[in-house]
Design a protein around this nucleic acid. Sequence first.
DNA 1: GTTTAGTTGACTAAATTGTTCGGGTATACG
DNA 2: CGTATACCCGAACAATTTAGTCAACTAAAC
Lengths: 163, 163
Amino acid sequence: MRLTTKGRFAVTAMIDVAMHGTNGPVTLAAVSERQRISLSYLEQLFGKLRRSGLVASVRGPGGGYHLARAAAQLSVAQIIVAVDEPIDATQCGGLENCRDDRRCMTHDLWAGLNSHIFSFLSGVTLAQLVAQQEQAAIHAALHEVRHVPAGTTPCKVPVTVAV
Amino acid sequence: MRLTTKGRFAVTAMIDVAMHGTNGPVTLAAVSERQRISLSYLEQLFGKLRRSGLVASVRGPGGGYHLARAAAQLSVAQIIVAVDEPIDATQCGGLENCRDDRRCMTHDLWAGLNSHIFSFLSGVTLAQLVAQQEQAAIHAALHEVRHVPAGTTPCKVPVTVAV
DNA sequence: GTTTAGTTGACTAAATTGTTCGGGTATACG
DNA sequence: CGTATACCCGAACAATTTAGTCAACTAAAC
C-alpha cells in the first residue's frame, strides 16, 4: 500500500467519471481537460483500472469509460492498489532470508500497519467522495464568489469526510 | 501525507531505537546492522527526525540517539511527516489558479482524505507498534523454529494491530 | 590524543513520475 | 463503404525521488 500522487490522480479521475457518467460513457479527453491530467497518463492509469475490473470501456464514437460497479461498491483502496503496484519495503523481498536478528521485524510490522491503512481506505467509497464533492459544489454556489485572502494557502484547508 | 518506503524505513528504525534504547542511546550503526538499512541513509533520516524534535542525539563514545518523548507520545504520522516532506498532488501547487472547471476539486478532496489518513496514523503510536513487536517475538520464541513451507510468501501474512 | 559517533555535504545508480509521440484497432454514423 | 471518434499500446523522455556511498568535520569519553 503506497500512497503517491499517482494513486491520487487515479482517484481524482475516477471521481470525475463517477460524477459525469450519469448518461453514457465518459471520454478520457474530457477527464483530461477537466482535471488537467495528461491524456496519455490517463490512458495508462485507466488501462490498469480496466484490467483490474474497476471500469469498463466502450470503443468507438460516443464511447469512453464507465464504472464497472456502483460507486458505493468502489473503494479508494481498490483504485490505489490497481494503479500503484505494491513494492515491499522489506530488505528480504518476500524471501525468508531475514536472518541476523532473531528475524527482521519489518515483515509483521508493515503487514500490520499496511492492513490497517488498507482496511481504512477500503471503507472510503467513491460514492462518499462524490457526495462530498457535490456538497462542496453546492456550498460554493451559495457563496457565489469565494473570497480568498492573498498570501494564504487555500489548498491546506482541512475538509472532513463523512465515513 | 505520502506513504513510501522512506517513511517505512524511518518508522522501522524508530521502533528499533524504542526497543533497544532502554539503557542508553542507540547507535545508528547498531540500527543499521539489525534492520539492514544503510548507515548513511539512516543518518539522513535521523537528521530529519532530530530537526523535527522526535529524537535527540548524544555525541561521542557511548552516544547515539534516543527518543525525545515517550514512545506513547510519538505517532507514526509524526515520523512520516518528518522524513517524507509533503508534496501536493494538485496541479495548481498551492495557488488558487485552478480555473476552467468551477474550480478543481482536487484540493478539498485530498485535503479531506489526507486529514483522515493523517488522523488515523496519528492514532498509531510507537508504543503500540513496539508492544505488537514484542508480542510477536514472544510468539516466535514459543514456537522455537517457525516452519515456513517453500514457495510461499511469508511477508504477506496479515497481522492485526490493536489500535 | 585517540577513539567513538553524530553532522554535513556532495555525488551516484536506480526507480518512479508525468509527458510526448506515433502508431494501432473497434465502432458509430453518414 | 469511408471517416471520425475514442479506446488501446508501446517506446522514449526529462525531472524527480530513492537509496546508498564517500569524505570530511565536530563533540565528547577515556
